[in-house]
Amino acid sequence: MKPAPFEYCRPSSVSEAVDALAAAESGRVLAGGQSLIPAMNFRLTDVSVLVDIRDVAGLDRVTVEPGGVTVGAAATQSRVLADDGAAAVVPGLRVALRHVGHLQIRNRGTVCGSIAHADPAAELPALAVAVDATISVEGPDGGRNIAARDFLLGPFWTALDDAEVVTEVCFPAAPEGAVTVVDEISRRAGDFAVTGLVAIIEPVDAVVRSARLVGFGVGGAPMRLTEAEAALSGWAGHHTDSAVLEAAAADAADAFEDIHATAEYRREVLGALVVRAARKALNSGASP
């Protein structure tokens, strides 16, 4: 349970970090280390050079503007969770982060690192897809911005090239009056979800006007639930659940199966989470 030998560097700029990654045989960015170090302790990951981005100037910045929140690659999850301004503009950040690990994990883990890690059961990648976040990366050929849905390709698989570094992620503001719900079934508080949902729902006069739904812990990458979104539009709390449940199950037709749950179970849970989120949004809309 100790990492195999590797070399370590701590550059002071993004371009030095990119150079170090490009020069290494198998270089890896080290952010909070809360996913990478366990993988190295287990010797699941082969790393020749670790590039620690902690000292890169400006990367720990969190910028809150009316249009959105931009989180730098070194900003910890605890720091963002505690930021009232960020929670006011993008409520999903706070509600998602409450489900991420425990205090000790969030004190080191970063928001951007969770997205770069792309665990299929993680909350923040699903939030990024739900709000149409943009991931900014720098590499040997310069910088580019990638939409979250194009960035997250599969389990632990992203559009990042080997020598690219995520510098920041921009989360656009939630629509006025929308309610953001992050809900999940997990075996214990703080564990990764068996299945979870990020829902951004706009209630108007006790009816769902529009819904943005993204499931996690169902597919290899965050899964947009377009059929359930359509089924929820115009839905009111007194309507029956069955159309919504069926639509969510259809969206999750390819749900995966593992030691924790069957695909069938994941589809059922997802539908139940969608209904639960819609009811919650309608109730909070009724009494703001």
């Binding site: 701590r10 170090i37 080191r108």
Partner: peptide, 28 residues
């Protein structure tokens, strides 16, 4: 206990924050 971040037995304070010492390198 586990050396992969699950049990919390190794928790120490670093600059005032509780962290898992098994998920941190000494150089960090």
């Amino acid at each position: 206990g586990c050396e992969h971040g699950y049990c919390g037995a190794c928790t120490v304070m670093v600059d005032g924050d509780a962290v898992r010492s098994c998920l941190m390198l000494t150089v960090q």
